[in-house]
Design a protein around this nucleic acid. Structure first.
Length: 806
RNA sequence: GCACCAGUGGCGGAAUGGCAGACGCAGCAGACUCAAAAUCUGCCGGGAGCAAUCUCGUGAGGGUUCAACUCCCUCCUGGUGCACCA
């Protein structure tokens, strides 16, 4: 009898072997076929690993292990996205340098990951806070700066009152800080910006060439928010002024009954003298400015606004005079900050017009003519027909759009225009624990880049990491560091004291893994050529509009500059679901439903945790934790272990199990590729149930099972392999092959139905003729067909017989 | 409000036009045991029937089809993302 499986001993034993033999090292043999599997590198937080981490890591570990056995040169790396606020805040609170905090957290994370037996190539570990790494983050920034894609701008930024830091739009959730939940207010600051908007079209178009799950593509497209429309010029009455608006519905121009400009629109100040209700306008503008993002969202349902008394506009297509209003439902940051309002065919304009009693003119008719403009605007562009629109009458909306655009361009009163929701990326953080921005400001020369030879520009040692109340970075207090000579003219100048956001280091880390020690370049051309693009990148949906978009932007920029050779960084992107607590809620300390992976590894073993997280449910959906489910997976592994006592000799599959073996190899192989780990494991469970029923398994069958299971449960399967007398290892074996012909049984069980209701089954040869099967089915049905009139007989080979009878 | 995803036994889930509930958990029964645990074996959606069997059943309602968990329409519920983007 075999000993009971001892995961403590066995897992440590094999982890040591892997550490010493380094079988998972990616080689520099660039002649072999390559496979680059990537998982998002973690932020090494003080809490340690969460049970959510192993789900994606195990998934790609399985795929990586399988690919190695299939002969690929596999790159499956891991590293640390270690700059960031929590570390800095912890450092401030406990008076420990953030670099020390980071070092400790990384050590803990690494221990935990190694205890799970991942086949990462630890020789390629990267850390974004390592100067040898952030040297290249700074280098990329300088390239962006030199290409005109990094610029400084005075702008109202999202300011977190608690973190005392500027936030990107992406980091503000419902008007509060994504990290700490404190209110976010507007504050005008001079900030570094990256012109991601220059890449809007490339970021959309590139999606056609990659294999991302549809959800990710849709979300990125929506986030970039490309819209095609037109800019139209309206004359202001009795002035030479032109008020330009952006619209996606130029076809409805005849229905414009008023205009609205944003409260911040410069036109207002320019015509101050003409405006008769100036006090009212100023009061409204101040009220709008005071609203936080949160209030603006909350109040979205109720439209407010003030008519500008003294200004009016002329509709260029019919010369009608229409009033001009200000309202905060028009945003200065989108389009031209002004709109033409067509209340009949725009929901927001409709609400506004109803509230203020403005005229509503219908210019599009529904298919049945029934449009109730008392209740709501008619916004359907598919079925509408133009009316009350002069030369557009009778056209469809689509035709109308094109014809009016031609007209506008011909008469020089407007032109086609594409707009995006995407904004430039706010790249400054007033914080210590980030990459210093390598720029020097000189009063005479302006912003001067630090010479590339001086990179990395190291973070100076400071005593206090506390942010200042006036919004300056802690670095600003370091006068020795700040005051430098201008590299250009030699006069006294100052260093930039803002640091980069956490997204910087993660925007290119996948490139560094290909050649992590390189001193001359971010990675060698040869390494990049061979390894890029990443073949399979798995990560959380929450990174779709942040990290994933930012890193595609940087990569496309590096491609345009000739530093990388693939236009897209990731060939395939998949996403995993969250692991919820046992009660179906998100795991959190306050809910008291947190599971610590260390406890599971200690009590049941890493192989059990890995198997369980893969068996828990569909990979892309959220799943609730279950302690009983964990036990079930351990029971399965124990049953595999105990098959040792039932082994009989055999160099080939036994006759009775041959088909089942080929079927299982096929199912497991395919399911691993398609993220269907749960059904792959179910197939292996079915297989061992067969062995248990027979109370025997031949050696070849057992070895095959062990090989198939190895990517999921690598420790136990190596141990079994050794017990079976092998001196080599499972990871050196070839992935089992299946023979398609041998996955098909000679006879098949065909369901027999009358009028689609199943009555029983018949066994027939797999390639039996239709007549034979139908007759067998009729025999089986016997008296049940008596007195019935057969109308139709359907046979789907190998599947079903359906007799339609009355 | 808009978009996307999901809704199947007591529970996690399988089946994406062809025998609904694979596999696992929990439960029940048996074997082993002095006993318990562990392990092994069997049963395990509802209703009717001694039974063979019949019948209902995949959030609700309608439709397409010989056949619908699967496709189409309307609605309900939950989750996620976006949210005055003209």
């Amino acid at each position: 009898m075999s000993e009971m499986y001892n995961h403590h001993v066995v897992e440590k034993k094999w982890q040591k072997v892997w550490e010493e033999n380094k079988p998972f090292r990616a080689t520099t043999d660039y002649t072999k076929p390559k496979f680059y599997a990537l998982v998002e590198f973690p932020y090494p937080s003080g809490q340690g690993l969460h049970v959510g981490h192993p789900r994606p890591y195990t998934a790609l570990d399985i795929v990586s292990r399988k690919r190695r056995m299939q002969g690929y040169n596999v790159l499956f790396p891991m590293g640390w996205d270690a700059f960031g606020l929590p570390t800095e805040n912890y450092a401030i609170k406990n008076k420990i340098h953030p670099a020390v905090v980071t070092k400790n957290n990384v050590a803990r994370f690494k221990d935990q990951l190694q205890s799970l037996g991942y086949s990462f190539d630890w020789e390629r570990e990267v850390n974004t806070t390592d100067p040898d790494y952030y040297k290249w983050t700074q280098w990329i920034f300088l390239k962006l700066f030199k290409a005109g894609l990094a610029y400084k701008k005075e702008m109202p930024i999202n300011w977190c009152t608690s973190c005392k830091v500027g936030l990107a739009n992406e980091e503000v959730v419902n008007g509060v800080c994504e990290r700490c939940g404190s209110p976010v207010v507007r504050k005008v600051k001079s900030e570094w910006m990256l012109k991601i908007t220059d890449y809007a079209d490339k970021l959309i178009d590139g999606l056609d060439s990659v294999d991302y799950i549809e959800r990710v593509k849709t979300q990125q497209k929506n986030w970039i928010g490309r819209s095609e429309g037109a800019e139209v010029d309206f004359k202001l009455k009795d002035t030479d002024e032109i008020l330009t608006v952006y619209t996606t519905r130029p076809d409805t121009l005849f229905g414009a009954t008023y205009m609205v400009v944003s409260p911040e629109h410069p036109l207002i100040d320019k015509y101050k003298d003409r405006i008769k209700n100036w006090d009212e306008i100023i009061a409204y503008r101040e009220m709008a400015a005071r609203k936080s993002d949160f209030e603006r969202t909350e109040l979205a349902k109720d439209k407010t606004g003030v008519v500008i008394d003294g200004l009016s506009a002329i509709n260029p297509v019919n010369e009608k005079e229409i009033p001009v209003w200000i309202s905060d439902y028009v945003l200065m940051s989108y389009g031209t900050g002004a709109i033409m309002a067509v209340p009949a065919h725009d929901t927001r304009d409709f609400e506004f017009a109803k509230k203020f009693g403005l005229p509503i003119i219908q210019v599009v008719e529904g298919p049945d003519g029934q449009v109730d403009l008392d209740k709501e605007a008619f916004t359907d562009v598919q079925t509408g027909t133009m009316i009350n629109s002069g030369f557009l009458d009778g056209l469809s909306v689509e035709e109308g759009k094109e014809k009016i655009k031609d007209f506008l361009e011909e008469k020089k009163i407007g032109h086609r225009k594409v707009n995006y929701k995407l904004r430039d990326w706010v790249f400054s953080r007033q914080r210590y624990w980030g990459e210093p921005i390598p720029i020097i400001h000189c009063d005479d020369c302006g912003y001067v880049p630090v010479d590339e030879s001086e990179l990395p520009l190291l973070l100076p040692e400071v005593d206090s990491y506390l942010p200042t109340d006036n919004g300056e970075s802690p670095l600003a207090a370091m006068t020795d560091w700040v005051n430098v000579k201008c590299p250009c003219c030699g006069k006294p100048a100052k260093r930039e004291t803002d640091t980069m956001p956490q997204w910087a280091g993660s925007s290119w880390y996948f490139l560094r893994y290909t050649d992590p020690e390189n001193k001359e370049a971010l990675a060698s051309k040869e390494a990049l050529n061979y390894w890029m693009p990443v073949d399979w990148y798995n990560g959380g949906m929450e990174h779709t509009t942040l990290h994933l978009l930012y890193s595609r932007f940087w990569h496309k920029f590096l491609y345009d500059e000739g530093y990388v050779t693939s236009p897209e960084p990731y060939q395939k992107r998949t996403s995993h679901g969250m692991i919820l607590g046992e009660n179906g809620e998100k795991m959190s300390k306050s809910r008291g439903n947190v599971i610590n992976p260390d406890d599971i590894v200690r009590d049941y073993g890493a192989d059990t945790l890995r198997t369980y997280e893969m068996f828990i449910g569909a990979f892309d959906l959220a799943a609730s934790w279950s302690d009983d489910g964990v036990k079930g997976c351990r029971r399965f592994l124990d049953r595999v272990w105990k098959l040792q006592d039932m082994v009989v000799p055999g160099d080939e599959f036994s006759k009775e199990n041959e088909i089942k073996m080929h079927q299982t190899i096929k199912k497991v192989s395919n399911d691993f590729e398609n993220l269907k780990f749960n059904t792959a494991i179910a197939a292996m469970m079915e297989l061992i149930n067969v062995f248990y029923k027979d109370k025997k398994v031949n050696k070849k069958e057992y070895e095959t099972l062990v090989t198939l299971l190895n990517p999921v449960a690598p420790h136990m399967t190596e141990e079994i392999w050794e017990v079976l007398g092998h001196t080599d290892h499972v990871y050196e074996q070839s992935w089992p092959e299946f023979d398609e012909a041998k996955t098909i049984e000679a006879t098949v069980e065909v369901a027999v139905q009358i009028n689609g209701k199943t009555k029983g089954t018949v066994n027939v040869m797999k390639d039996a003729e239709k007549d034979v099967v139908i007759n067998a089915a009729k025999d089986m049905l016997g008296a049940r067909l008596d007195g019935k009139n057969i109308i139709k007989e359907i046979y789907v080979p190998g599947r079903i017989v359906n007799i339609v009878a009355k």
